[in-house]
Computed example of a mutant assay.
Amino acid sequence: MRPKRFRDTTRIGPVHVASFYDRRGRDKHTAACTAPRCGFSAEYDSRAAAELAARTHTCNP
């Protein structure tokens, strides 16, 4: 399996938002928190949803 190639990455607070193509060639978006011991990450179909999740994410590591 090939690793995901992320593009158009941005950072909103501790959360990174990036776009990538899945195995079927569909455009997907991910949001992942980089705070220690947080563990938040999710994939979305739209960039707006990923950015909204990044803006509203609160973590208590």
Rank of each mutant, 00 (worst) to 15 (best):
T30I: 07
A32P: 00
T30Y: 03
R11S: 10
A18T: 03
A54E: 10
G39V: 02
E51S: 07
G25P: 06
K4D: 08
A31D: 05
R55I: 05
R37T: 13
T9C: 00
V15N: 03
H16G: 01
A49W: 03
H29D: 01
G25Y: 09
R24I: 09
K28L: 08
C59F: 03
F20A: 07
A35L: 13
P14R: 10
S41N: 15
C38V: 04
C59N: 03
R7K: 06
I12E: 12
K4M: 12
F6T: 07
D22H: 09
A48M: 05
R11C: 07
A42L: 05
H57R: 00
R55L: 13
R5Q: 15
A49N: 06
D45V: 06
R37P: 03
C59W: 05
R26A: 10
P14E: 14
K4W: 14
R11H: 09
R5L: 15
T10L: 06
R24F: 11
R11A: 12
V15T: 09
R5K: 13
C59P: 04
E51T: 04
C38L: 04
K4L: 14
Y21K: 15
R47F: 00
A31S: 09
A18I: 02
I12W: 05
M1F: 12
A32G: 11
A48P: 02
R7E: 15
L52Q: 15
G25A: 11
S46N: 05
R2L: 14
